[in-house]
Amino acid sequence: MKKITPSFWLQRQIPWGLSFTLASLLVSCSYSDIPIGPTSLNSRYTEQQPALSGNGRFLAFVSNRNGSHLVLLYDLEQQQFIATPGLNRPETIAESPSLSYTGRYIAYITSDQGRPVVALYDRATQQSQILTPIYPAWVRNPNISPNGRYVVFETASRGQWDIEVLDRGPNIELDIPNGAAVGESP
């Protein structure tokens, strides 16, 4: 008959205890705890390419909830989606969103006549405009400055990926926090 010592008991019980603890952690972190639905941040569809506004309130991301790549805007404070009429055009793909400081401006990639272009959506006017309509090369990964004046993106105009800086000009309406002086940068 084998004598059961404390060390023998520990050798047998520790693996079971660790396995139980690990299983408990996995169950507690399961995806079923994440709210899923048409009005929640997550859905059963692919959500990707997240971008956060400078003030941390808005989240833009690409989703295929409606059967195509759409840029969606979510208010993290109110925990609801923000309507963006004019942002997503029918039968086009939208990708790589970037937000200005308060989320007024959204720079993103869309398609125009089969080629990717950099577009800019203004939530105040609810209009989208193409910033690179006759650009001779492929573009990708736009990023807008916090105040909305500058948009940077990658371009393959020289046969390699380079960076372009597009200045929207001094006369645009800047995206600045309420009460900030015009010369201040958020």
Rank of each mutant, 00 (worst) to 15 (best):
I134F: 15
I130F: 10
R115T: 02
S53F: 03
A51V: 01
T110G: 07
V71D: 04
P90Q: 11
P97V: 11
W138G: 11
P116H: 12
I93R: 13
Y108Q: 04
L70N: 08
D75L: 12
D122F: 02
S111L: 08
V139Y: 11
Q79T: 10
L59W: 08
P85F: 12
L73G: 13
H69Y: 09
L87H: 13
V118T: 08
L120C: 03
Q49K: 02
L76S: 08
H69V: 00
S100M: 10
E95A: 11
S98N: 06
E95C: 07
Y121C: 00
L59T: 06
Y101F: 14
V139H: 08
T102A: 08
F81L: 10
L73I: 08
E91Q: 13
Q49H: 01
W138Q: 15
T110P: 04
S128E: 10
R123S: 13
A94W: 04
S128Q: 07
V62S: 03
V118H: 06
R140T: 10
D122K: 02
I93P: 05
G56H: 02
Q78E: 15
E91W: 09
V62L: 05
R65C: 00
Q127L: 07
L59D: 07
L99A: 06
T92N: 13
L73N: 14
G103N: 09
S68P: 00
N66D: 04
H69Q: 05
E95K: 11
A137R: 09
F81P: 09
T92H: 12
L70P: 00
